[in-house]
Every structure is written in structure tokens, then in C-alpha cells.
């Protein structure tokens, strides 16, 4: 048990800040939901018990579990859409919260899949390939979503 605790503390616990950023990206800046997702993910990881002793890439495993957990949370919130669905950027709509920056407000108006990918790109500085691995969306689709999102942001910023 002590060995397991040590492994968990040294290899899995340090991943939680990154998990939190990803959770925020997936769940749309809801800090409570992101915290829940990270906590639930860590509990799932811990419940694997002795399996953790032979995990080679703790971060990859943690992110994979976080993703399914966050998606479950999203589904429970009835706000989630298919990740692979490529939709057009939502039309200009009023931002959800006044205190957020213009950029945040623009991203919040986007469809969930696009929002998630953009956030992963901004918060975690992830490449299209890495985002593809986390989200399960193909590399091509990730690049398309990134491109449309960034162009939409620039379009709105140009009008300001």
C-alpha cells in the first residue's frame, strides 16, 4: 500500500494541474465542473490499485481518463455534442459572462467541440497532433476546427 501511495504521489498527482486545464477546456471554463472532473479522474486512477505500478505514461493515462470523465460530466449537464461534429462557428451572440475577456466571450459562443480544441490550444499550448490524441478527433478535423475558430476570433477582433 505504501508503494502504491508513493507511486500515486510522485507520478500521478503532479499531473493534476494539466488535467485541470484540459478539464476547463472541455467543460467550458466552469471551474466547479473542472474540479469535479479532475477529482473524479484521480479517484478512478487511484481505484486501479496495483495496475498503477506498471503504467509507463501516467500523463497519457490520466488525460485519457479525464477526457471520458469530462465527457460524462458534459453529458450529465446535457451540453455536450459529438466531438467529431464540425459545425460552423456560432453567429455572434452575447457573451455568457461580463467579466470575461473578449476572447473568452467569443470562445464561449462556439460549439463545444470547437471550444474544447481552442481551449486546449490556448491553455496547454498543445499541437494539433496532441489535441487529436486527447480528444480523439482526427488530426485533420482538429486543424480545421482550429483554423475556423481562430479566423472567427480574428474576424470579431477586426470589428472591434
Amino acid at each position: 500500500m505504501k508503494q502504491l501511495e508513493e507511486i500515486f504521489r510522485k507520478r500521478f498527482l503532479p499531473v493534476y494541474p494539466k488535467l485541470y486545464s484540459i478539464a476547463l477546456a472541455i467543460l467550458g471554463s466552469s471551474t466547479d465542473l473542472a474540479s469535479d472532473a479532475v477529482q473524479e479522474t484521480m479517484v478512478k486512477i487511484w481505484s486501479k490499485g496495483d495496475e498503477l505500478l506498471s503504467v509507463n505514461n501516467p500523463e497519457a493515462l490520466s488525460i485519457a481518463i479525464l477526457r471520458t470523465t469530462a465527457i460524462d460530466i458534459m453529458r450529465r449537464q446535457r451540453k455536450y455534442e459529438q466531438v467529431d461534429t464540425i459545425t460552423d462557428i456560432a453567429p455572434d451572440s452575447p457573451p455568457d459572462h461580463e467579466t470575461a475577456t473578449i476572447l473568452e466571450r467569443i470562445i464561449d459562443t462556439m460549439p463545444p467541440a470547437q471550444k474544447e480544441i481552442l481551449r486546449l490550444s490556448i491553455f496547454e499550448d498543445l499541437s494539433a497532433k496532441e489535441i487529436s490524441e486527447i480528444t480523439g478527433v482526427s488530426g485533420t478535423n482538429v486543424r480545421q476546427l482550429l483554423s475556423r475558430g481562430r479566423k472567427k476570433i480574428k474576424e470579431i477582433y477586426s470589428k472591434l
Binding site: 500515486f8 485541470y20 484521480m42 487511484w46
Partner: peptide
């Protein structure tokens, strides 16, 4: 408190 919450709910 997130780290503490994680520790409390696991170890």
C-alpha cells in the same frame, strides 16, 4: 483546495 480534495478522496 483541489490538491487536498484529491488526496482526501484517494490516499
Amino acid at each position: 483546495n483541489l490538491e487536498q480534495l484529491i488526496i482526501d478522496s484517494t490516499i
